[in-house]
Simulated scan of single mutants.
Amino acid sequence: MTIDTYQFDDLKLLSPEVQKLLPDQYQLRSLGSNDFARGHLDVLSVLTQTGTHTYHDWLDQFQYMQSHADTYFSIVIEDQALDRVVAVGTLFVERKFVHDNGRVGHIEDIAVANDQQGQRLGLRVIQALQYIGRQQGCYKIILDCATKNIPFYEKCGFQQKESQMVMYTSSK
């Protein structure tokens, strides 16, 4: 493995309160360039299909997001004893013309490894992303979720509002 670089380096964006709530061997941090080998996609596959990434495919996407570090904030919780990613999530910051050129945070891709569920790691990821959203000046933070997950997100402080619409295209 090469030396890790991180998707964003601003440690002020990581909540010290969330870190304190994690088990001792767990670390909250930005997505790292070596997280492909640490199982980043394995954790995401709990949520949805991830495709057939090679390391280079994954690294291209990582580097794109890293070069847009004011827009993408991907975080992981790593079990340092196992050198393994166990929970993930991303906050995407959209810049708007409304609300005086305001910012909206979109929470995406929250996933916890199957063998780590029940330890409140999903809650910790959400709390950490909410913290980043506040640090980035977002006037609201939104997410889409499956109906079965609504009670979980309500416990995280979200409320149901309006409806989501989707149209899938044949493009990648």
Score class of each variant (00 low, 15 high):
Val93Lys: 06
Val98Ala: 03
Ile110Gly: 04
Asp70Ala: 11
Arg103Pro: 00
Val104Leu: 03
Asn101Gln: 12
Asp115Ala: 12
Val112Ile: 05
Glu94Phe: 07
Val93Pro: 05
Gly105Lys: 08
Met65Asn: 14
Ala69His: 15
Gly102His: 03
Ile110Glu: 03
Val85Thr: 10
Ala113Asn: 09
Asp115His: 13
Ile107Glu: 05
Ala111Leu: 08
Ile107Leu: 15
Gly89Leu: 09
His99Trp: 04
Phe73Gly: 08
Val104Cys: 02
Asp79Gln: 10
His99Ala: 09
Val76Cys: 14
Tyr64Met: 15
Arg95Gln: 09
Glu94His: 13
Gln66Val: 09
Phe92Ser: 05
Ala113Lys: 06
Leu82Met: 15
Thr71His: 10
Asn114Leu: 10
Asn101Lys: 12
Leu82Gln: 15
Asp79Ser: 11
Glu94Ile: 12
Val88Asp: 03
Val93Cys: 12
His106Glu: 05
Leu91Tyr: 02
Val88Lys: 03
Gly105Pro: 00
Val86Met: 14
Asp70Asn: 12
His106Val: 11
His106Asn: 11
Val88Ala: 06
Gly102Tyr: 01
Val112Ser: 08
Ile107Ala: 08
Val93Thr: 11
Asp109Pro: 03
Val98Asp: 01
Thr71Tyr: 07
Glu78Ser: 06
Asp100Asn: 09
Val104His: 00
Asp70Ile: 00
Val76Glu: 09
Val76Phe: 02
Ile77Arg: 02
Leu82Phe: 11
Val112Leu: 07
Ile75Trp: 08
Lys96Pro: 00
His106Met: 08
Glu108Phe: 03
Gln66Phe: 10
Ala87Glu: 14
Arg103Asp: 00
Gln80Met: 13
Arg95Ile: 03
His99Leu: 07
Val104Met: 05
Ala87Gly: 13
Arg95Pro: 00
Ala69Val: 02
Ala69Gln: 15
Ser67Ala: 13
Leu91Ala: 10
Asp115Glu: 15
Glu108Asp: 04
Val76Met: 09
Ala87Trp: 12
Ile107Cys: 06
Phe97Ser: 05
Val85Pro: 02
Glu94Gln: 14
Ser67Gln: 11
Met65Leu: 13
Lys96Arg: 13
Asp109Phe: 07
Asp100Arg: 01
His68Tyr: 11
Gln80Ala: 06
Val76Thr: 14
Val76Asp: 08
Val93His: 05
Val86Tyr: 13
Thr71Ala: 06
His99Arg: 10
Ser74Gly: 08
Phe92Arg: 06
Glu78Met: 10
Tyr72Val: 09
Gln80Gly: 01
Val104Glu: 04
Ile107Gly: 04
Asp115Val: 05
Ile77Glu: 06
Arg84Tyr: 02
Gln66Cys: 13
Ala111Trp: 01
Phe92Pro: 00
Asp70Gln: 12
Gly105Met: 04
Asn101Thr: 08
Ala111Met: 06
Ile75Phe: 07
Tyr72Trp: 15
Leu91Gln: 01
Thr90Phe: 01
Ile107Arg: 08
Asp109Glu: 14
His106Tyr: 07
Val85Trp: 03
Phe97Ile: 13
Asp83Ile: 06
Ala81His: 13
Gln66Arg: 15
Val112Asp: 11
Asp70Leu: 03
Tyr72Ile: 10
Met65Pro: 04
Ser67Ile: 02
Ile75Lys: 06
Ala113Pro: 01
Val93Gly: 06
Asp100Phe: 00
Tyr64Gln: 15
Leu91Phe: 02
Thr90Val: 12
Val76Leu: 05
Arg103His: 05
Ile75Val: 15
Val85Cys: 06
Ser67Phe: 01
